[in-house]
Amino acid sequence: MLGKLEEEEIEKLLSEQYIGRLACHAHGVSYIVPINYVYSSGMVYAHSAPGQKIRMMKSNPQVCFQTDQIRDTYNWKSVVCWGKFEEVTDAGEKQRALQGIIHRMMPLTNTPSEQPSHGTGKTDAYDEEIIVFKIVLHLKTGRFEVNDSSN
């Protein structure tokens, strides 16, 4: 059975997942990339080193974001959102976003001590260049499929 996710199911999926896909478009080129994220108050928070996606989002801040939960081919949920890229420059908001991402990702890492610090306060070249951004969402849709015979 195919169906639409209700608003609370959309919010739940966005809050529970930690990997999504960010799509941007600028100068006639489309680009989609997986990102680690944390969802809070209607916003997707993420971080990146400078590069193509940051350049494209600064050029055209209108982006699309997608995340999903897939058990198998006939049992899945997916959310697609549209929003606006904003670089986070406030030190407090930036720190809260980074801590949120770290708290979501570290339990999923086998060897956290061997991973880049990702803005945890350790000084290295990556931390100095890190860009924290948010996607302020203005439209969210969700779909699902469930195989009734699997219940």
Rank of each mutant, 00 (worst) to 15 (best):
V80S: 11
E6I: 06
N60H: 07
E11C: 04
N110Y: 06
L98E: 06
E11H: 10
Q66V: 10
Y18P: 01
T89H: 10
P34W: 05
K84G: 00
F65E: 02
E8W: 05
K122I: 15
G92N: 08
R21K: 15
F85N: 02
V132Y: 00
M56N: 06
V132M: 02
K58M: 14
T67V: 04
S150I: 08
R143V: 13
T109C: 12
P107G: 09
T73V: 04
Y31A: 05
L98D: 03
T67E: 02
K122R: 13
I131A: 07
S41M: 11
I54H: 01
S117F: 00
I32S: 15
N36V: 15
S30Q: 00
I35T: 10
S117H: 09
C64P: 00
E8R: 06
G3F: 04
F85P: 01
P112M: 06
S40K: 12
Y39A: 07
I19H: 05
A97R: 02
H138V: 01
Y37S: 12
W82E: 14
V63K: 02
W82T: 12
V132A: 07
Q115C: 06
I135T: 07
S78C: 13
Y37T: 11
Q66R: 00
V29T: 03
Y74M: 12
I19V: 15
A26G: 10
F65L: 11
H103A: 14
L13Q: 01
S41I: 06
Y37Q: 12
V132F: 05
D148R: 09
D72N: 12
L98R: 02
I131V: 14
N151Y: 10
R71Y: 12
L2S: 11
G121H: 04
S40Y: 01
A46M: 07
F133D: 01
H27L: 12
E11Y: 02
N36L: 14
Y31G: 07
F65C: 03
A26P: 11
V136R: 04
E6G: 03
Q115D: 10
V44N: 08
Q52T: 14
A97P: 01
A97D: 10
N36G: 15
A97Q: 06
T141E: 09
L13A: 11
T111C: 08
K84C: 06
H27D: 15
Q62G: 04
E114F: 06
H103G: 03
P112H: 00
K122T: 09
I54N: 00
V33Y: 05
Y74L: 12
E11N: 10
E93Q: 11
V29H: 09
K84M: 13
I10N: 01
E129D: 13
Q17M: 15
T73F: 03
A46N: 13
F144K: 06
H27F: 03
A23P: 07
V136H: 04
L2A: 09
D127R: 05
P107N: 04
P50M: 13
L137K: 04
M105S: 14
A23K: 03
Y18R: 08
Q17R: 15
M105R: 08
M105Y: 04
Q62R: 10
D68S: 12
I54R: 04
D90M: 00
V79M: 06
P112K: 01
Q69I: 00
S59H: 02
